[in-house]
């Protein structure tokens, strides 16, 4: 039994949860300040999750409804396990085996799939609309995101994140070595964070919070936990691929925070898109930059 692996997994999850929760709190605070409010304290999300876990009753709609949040948190934790937190293996290595970028592309969809199945069982029409919107939007932002990642894989002939990190030690950050892929990736990333204007899935005022509308109490707590972990995993993955990773925790927090603030700040000043507007957005400029990134990669290796 490798105790350091288990210790590493636990510490990684706790770190991801804490950072993700604090980022959520900071985003609420920033939103409040921009709206000229005082806003909740930045640890508000912890209180919310604690309260949700201390709810004393739970509704039963069927097996898949119970499994949905568990599936989501499993998928987000698994995603986290395959992302190197710091470069050069300074943090716990967990499961960063080679070839993991392609694997992660599949893994990142899994959580939303679980949510979709769980929400589908509840029978709430708002959930069904939210799920269909979410899957449509996923079709939207996956295109530029995949184009960006494939451009990098072609250009540098590397598919593992550890490989990309080592590469960036030599040639510098990939956002400069492969700028068009970076732009496409960043624009797709804004959509992946599900903040406004891309919050069409959870739209509280029109869909009554969408897929989780029948989930309350502990299920919602699990979903919030999963969301916090997944946010951190996505941020670290983005930093690892484009911003050269981080050599210590402080640098990691700085870089992830900067990347996190882009969708947050963009979202505060933007109204919500409709579904087709959102998809049209992703298939517009982000995809264009993705294609340019592919051509650039082809040009660079030729």
């Amino acid at each position: 039994m490798d105790w350091s692996l288990i210790l590493g997994i636990i510490i990684t999850i706790i770190t991801a949860f804490t950072v993700g929760m604090f980022y959520g709190g900071i985003s609420r605070k920033v939103t409040a300040r921009i709206q000229n409010r005082v806003g909740p304290p930045i640890w508000q999300n912890f209180l919310d999750v604690l309260k949700l876990y201390s709810k004393e009753s739970a509704i039963h709609h069927g097996w898949m409804q119970h499994l949905g949040p568990l599936w989501a948190i499993t998928a987000s934790t698994a995603t986290l396990m395959f992302v190197p937190i710091l470069n050069n293996g300074q943090f716990y290595e967990n499961l960063n085996f080679s070839g993991d970028l392609i694997f992660l592309i599949y893994m990142m969809v899994l959580g939303q799939l679980g949510m979709a199945l769980g929400a589908g069982q509840t029978g709430n029409p708002n959930s069904a609309i939210g799920v269909s919107r979410g899957l449509s939007q996923m079709v939207g932002y996956k295109v530029p995101w995949l184009l960006a990642l494939v451009a990098i894989m072609i250009q540098f002939k590397v598919t593992s994140i550890t490989g990309i990190l080592e590469l960036q030690n030599e040639i510098g950050w990939l956002m400069f070595a492969s700028p068009f892929a970076f732009i496409a990736g960043l624009l797709a990333f804004i959509g992946m964070m599900h903040y406004a204007p891309f919050d069409i899935v959870f739209a509280p005022s029109e869909l009554a919070s969408g897929p989780p509308s029948e989930f309350g109490g502990k299920y919602l707590g699990l979903m919030m936990t999963s969301g916090a972990i997944f946010t951190f995993a996505k941020l670290v993955l983005f930093v690892d691929i484009f911003l050269g990773g981080a050599s210590n925790i402080l640098e990691l927090l700085l870089k992830t925070f900067v990347i996190y603030m882009i969708p947050v700040l963009y979202g505060i000043v933007s109204p919500r898109y409709r579904t087709e507007q959102s998809i049209r957005y992703f298939w517009g400029w982000p995809t264009f930059f993705g294609v340019i990134g592919m051509l650039y990669a082809w040009y660079m290796i030729a």
């Binding site: 409040a32 409010r37 005082v38 909740p40 009554a208 989780p212 029948e214 309350g216």
Partner: peptide, 13 residues
């Protein structure tokens, strides 16, 4: 919201 009071969209939440 500074008291932690925020809106919820459905009765379950």
């Amino acid at each position: 919201e500074r008291f932690g009071i925020r809106g919820a969209a459905t009765p379950r939440q």
